[in-house]
Each structure stands twice: as C-alpha cells, then as structure tokens.
Amino acid sequence: MARHEVKSPIPGTFYRKPAPDQPPFAEIGQSVAKGDTVGLVEVMKTFHEVKADADGMIVGFPVADSDPVMAGQTIVELD
C-alpha cells in the first residue's frame, strides 16, 4: 500500500479534536474516506477543518494536538 500524506493548507495551530471536551476526529488504525475531517487548524481567530484528500487507514499523526504547523506540513499519514 502506498503512503499518502494529508497536508495542512495553512499555518496555525493544529487540533485533533473538534472541542477540548470532545474525542478526536480520528485515531490511528481508523479508516477515513476522502472528504472526512481529520483535524482543525486555528489561524486568524478561525478554525479551519482539514479534510482527508484520499481514502486510507490512518497510520500516524506527525504533529501533536495543539502544536504549531506550517502550510504544507504533513499532519496525517494514511496507508
């Protein structure tokens, strides 16, 4: 299976959960479909959903929850 990297289109702060008291959008081992939300990036007072741009199983989150991300940085690895 080919690796696929989902990248953040914008710089900001990465969150894996829709809200602090809610479970993460997705976990390692989970299958996602193209278009599924896999995280949020906060910038300029707004939260932008990052969606999977391919189908696959999540094998890694190279960026931890609440960490800064750059535009083009991989935030989810799919297999």
Binding site: K7, P9, I10, P11, M70, A71, G72
Partner: peptide, 10 residues
C-alpha cells in the same frame, strides 16, 4: 491560475 502550498511569508 492556482497556487501551491505557501513557502514563506503570509
């Protein structure tokens, strides 16, 4: 016209 990922600046 479209754009690639931001490399530097804002």
């Amino acid at each position: 016209l479209s754009f690639d990922f931001l490399k530097a600046g804002a």
